[in-house]
């Protein structure tokens, strides 16, 4: 699964910085029918987590009203240089992980 994440390369300690994360996913909500009238089974990303050096920034449950190619932006507090990690969990059990380095001055 393709994901795109925006994290500033360098931030000042104590500052808040914005993070944006987007994943390529149809987020099939399970309510649609195909051309033959058969129900299209639900398949969404149901969980999204962002951690900063292992500590939780936010942890979300996603349900069917979340749009296709889900997008989230949020504010993180700069503490130490290290890594932001992102995790998306699919209904089929697969997990997509992504990480981005950050330098705190």
């Amino acid at each position: 699964m393709k994901v795109l994440v925006s994290v500033p390369a360098v931030v000042r300690r104590g500052e808040a910085f914005e993070v944006k994360a987007m994943a390529m996913h149809v987020m099939e909500n399970g309510f649609r029918r195909d051309m033959d009238g058969k129900a299209v089974p639900r398949k969404i990303l149901n969980h999204f987590t962002c951690r900063y050096n292992g500590e939780i920034v936010l942890d979300c449950d996603w349900h069917t009203p979340i749009s296709a190619n889900p997008y989230m932006s949020f504010a993180v507090k700069a503490v130490d240089s290290g890594t932001l990690t992102f995790e998306w969990i699919d209904d089929d059990g697969s997990i997509e992980r992504h990480s981005a380095p950050i330098t705190v001055t």
């Binding site: 393709k2 994901v3 795109l4 994440v5 925006s6 944006k20 987007m22 994943a23 390529m24 296709a68 190619n69 997008y71 932006s73």
Partner: peptide, 13 residues
């Protein structure tokens, strides 16, 4: 915004 434009997911792929 390249990080808000979902089309950029396809460009990245």
């Amino acid at each position: 915004d390249d990080f808000a434009n979902p089309g950029m997911l396809w460009v990245a792929e």
